[in-house]
Design a binder for these strands. Sequence first.
DNA 1: TTTTATT
Length: 380
Amino acid sequence: MGPSSRSFNLGMLFIQNSKSMETQLSNGPTCNNTSNGPSTISNNCSSPVESGSMEDSKTNLIVNYLPQNMTQEELKSLFGSIGEIESCKLVRDKITGQSLGYGFVNYVDPKDAEKAINTLNGLRLQTKTIKVSYARPSSASIRDANLYVSGLPKTMTQKELEQLFSQYGRIITSRILVDQVTGVSRGVGFIRFDRRIEAEEAIKGLNGQKPPGATEPITVKFANNPSQKTSQALLSQLYQSPNRRYPGPLAQQAQRFRLDNLLNMAYGVKSRFSPMAIDGVTSLAGINIPGHAGTGWCIFVYNLAPDADESILWQMFGPFGAVTNVKVIRDFNTNKCKGFGFVTMTNYDEAAMAIASLNGYRLGDRVLQVSFKTNKTHKA
DNA sequence: TTTTATT
């Protein structure tokens, strides 16, 4: 298989990449709406006219739509690649400890916060497109401001939904749920207002009302709070295939099987997809498994450009699965990339998929070599 | 017919 045939699944990744990289040079914080996540026309980006509050932090970010399995350490690793972090917190359910899919990153330097927005907002990680924006000052008035709207006309767009609700306040996010197969609206949506009182007014004004041109009235009420699930729902969530994610196109699955079989044959391991089984063999027999570093699977990336940085590694490998760490190796004096770097991924099959897809990938005018890291020892 | 946005 030639290098050129391997870039098949990276189109979206780099459309995205070029966007975030280019906006880095533009002026000030940008209001990037992600293409496939919930978004809003009136985003919570600070504008001098709109917010004017001198209290708004310019270092503290809220990160939304994180993959369910992403840990706080991984969050810190990702955002730490931009600049020095003062603090970092992944928000978890108080009872189950499960990630709620969002977190906070507070930088030391406001310029790094701005850079993180420009570089990482819209980054694809597994099945998610993360959103990075300035955190509003925490206060009780902004909590429980999320509305559940049902009975919407199937033809209503997100923009029209926002237009309907915007008369009641500042909208932070909006979303219309669609059928996963057909993509058609389910007539159900969400509106998150900046403040709870705005949400209350919207309920008073719109619940039971017919939107312009609609034949049926809509229902507007406060959305269920994820942390208020019944214990049953929590349990079922805990046990529903936690490791099943990002199956990808059929071709990728087939390729994954081939790779697994190859590795299994090479090391005499029969149980497929089982890093633990391989790990067991490693520790029992002391065999050196390429890339296996105990905490994950270390991947060697060769032929990076001198100006390559960590974010490019996140952007390349993030979509394939859980990435715990990335590192660009730099020259001590020039601080330029020495042409290679490392990526650590948690799961073997995802790492193998990333290698299969990215080895031979053309990045700019360079063809990358991607493989499991080998334990190279200096020749005597 | 309920997505994971305020520590």
